[in-house]
Structure formats: C-alpha cells, structure tokens
C-alpha cells in the first residue's frame, strides 16, 4: 500500500498539480485506479499509454470535467473537487485546454473565439482585446485569419486556433489532448516547438496526452505511463530516462516502439 502523502507536504514541494490515489470509473466500469503522481511547475508532463487505456479520461478528470470515483487532484496544494464553485472557477481560469479537434465555436470567427475568454473574464478595452487576439493568433502562425470561421480553415489550423484560445488568459497550466494527431510532420514539429517555447518563455506548466513517440522525447520532461491491462500506472518519470531505465518492460517496449526489449506478444493496450 502506498502511504497517504500529507497535503501540506505537497504544497511545500511546489507541485503545480498533485494527483493522489485517483480512481476513475465510467459507471461501474473501472478505467484506472491508484494513480499517484505530481506535475512540477514548468514541467512538460506527458500522459502516455496505449490506445484505450484512459489517457484522455485522465485529462478530463484533471480539467474537472469528470468527477473522480476516489482520490484527489490538487492544484498548488488545493483539492479541486472539494473546493466551492467560485474557487473552482478561479482555478479553471488559470488553465487553458486545447481539445483534439480544436473545439472552436463554429458560429464565431477565430478572433471572436480567442477573444471570448478575454471579454468574459477581463476588463480590457475592446481595442486591447483585438490587439491581444491578433498577437495570440500570430503566435500560432494564424496571422491574417482573424475574420475566418472555423469551417473555412483546415483541421491543423483549427487545432492551432484552439491553442490560441487556450492561451488567451495567459494560463499557468496548459492541457493538450493529442495535439499532433492528424498533423503533418512539419506542423507537428512546429507545434512541439511552440509548446517548448511557451514552457520556456512563459514558464507555463504543460500537461499533454499523446502517443507520438517523437513528441514524447522532444518535449516531455516528465510523464506517467498508464496500462490498460493492469488498469493502473506502470511508471512515472522523464520519458528519456524511462526508455532505458524503467523497471517495467512494457514501458521500455512502448518507448522504443517494440525494438528488442520484449517479444511482439506483449502488445500494448489490448
């Protein structure tokens, strides 16, 4: 049995996010249990694992969309799910979330999409909001597309516009659900660079769900590996360290794309 960490201790270590003994269920269907890990400030934290092991579900718990069946998720020492509605809103304003396909509001232009959180939660003048929106869109390489509607741009552009919206409030934590899925290698590389740059320049903590090995090694400074069979985390740590030093053969196998560590029968995520 794992020991119950003291919440005070978590606050002192300065972890941006602390997940403790988390159990996730859909109805009576167990997804994952006993997840315990911490995301430090400025980390690029990768949630890894095979298809269908509950990576996206974990992300949805971390952004407060789903209620955990057991366990806690704390932000800077404060448990999200036992907080009041007003406190939860304050915490949520410090996060930015990008969804798999962008999740842009289809009835609004890109500028209106990115400007929505700004006009909702800040008292900036509309000219300042316009400037900031133009800048955020330029950051993701969409300068000049302010008046386009989501239906008029490509999937990769929609993804980047979703990132611009997530960054609108200068969040402390950015969550990404499969950011490079469906992007060509160059766009994926550019997005990885952007994520790294943001984490370096702004000190943003980044939590990212992905199974793209190149991204995992290029940007991941820390991570957790979920397994669909045992329904719990197999290992946690920096991906590049886990590649050669993980005590779990499955993790080494996954990170090396099955090169020599384990026979093919140990397929991931079945």
């Amino acid at each position: 049995m794992m020991e119950q960490p003291d919440p005070e201790a978590i606050a002192e270590t300065g972890a941006a996010i602390a997940v403790d003994q988390l159990t996730m269920k859909y109805g009576s269907n167990l997804i994952q249990e006993n997840l315990t890990f911490q995301v430090q400030k400025g980390d690029v934290f990768v949630i890894m694992g095979g298809s269908g092991c509950g990576k996206s579900t974990l992300l949805k718990h971390m952004i407060g969309l789903y209620q955990p069946a057991a366990g806690t998720i704390s932000y800077e020492g404060k448990d999200y799910f036992s907080a009041t509605d007003a406190q939860q809103l304050e915490m949520r304003k410090r996060w930015g979330v990008t969804y798999q396909s962008g999740a842009l509001f289809s009835a609004m232009t890109l500028a209106e999409n990115v400007g929505l959180p700004l006009s909702q939660y800040t008292r900036m003048k509309s000219s300042e909001i316009d400037d900031l929106v133009r800048y955020k869109l330029a950051l993701v390489g969409l300068s000049g597309y302010e008046s386009y509607y989501p239906s008029e741009i490509s999937g990769g552009m929609a993804k980047r516009a979703g990132l611009a919206r997530a960054m609108a409030l200068d969040p402390d934590v950015l969550f990404f659900d499969e950011p490079s899925a469906g992007l060509d290698p160059l766009s994926a590389k550019r997005l990885d660079d952007l994520i790294l740059q943001l984490s370096h320049s702004l000190g943003v903590t980044i939590v990212i769900v992905t199974h793209e090995l190149e991204s995992i090694f290029a940007i991941g400074s820390n991570g957790v590996f979920l397994d669909a069979q045992t329904k719990t985390q197999l290992d946690t740590g920096a991906p590049s360290y886990m590649l050669n030093h993980s005590s779990q053969p499955l993790v080494r196998d996954f990170l090396s794309r099955g090169q020599g560590h384990q026979p093919i029968s140990g397929e991931v995520g079945q």
Partner: peptide, 18 residues
C-alpha cells in the same frame, strides 16, 4: 530574451492576405 523569442515566434509566419 523571453520577450524576444516569443516575438520571433509570432512573426515567424507572415500575415495571410485576407
């Protein structure tokens, strides 16, 4: 440096002609 690198990122792609 941080401001500079963000600015370089923002200007990396020229604005598209509308």
């Amino acid at each position: 440096d941080d401001a500079l690198s963000l600015h370089q990122l923002a200007t990396a792609v020229p604005p598209a002609a509308v």
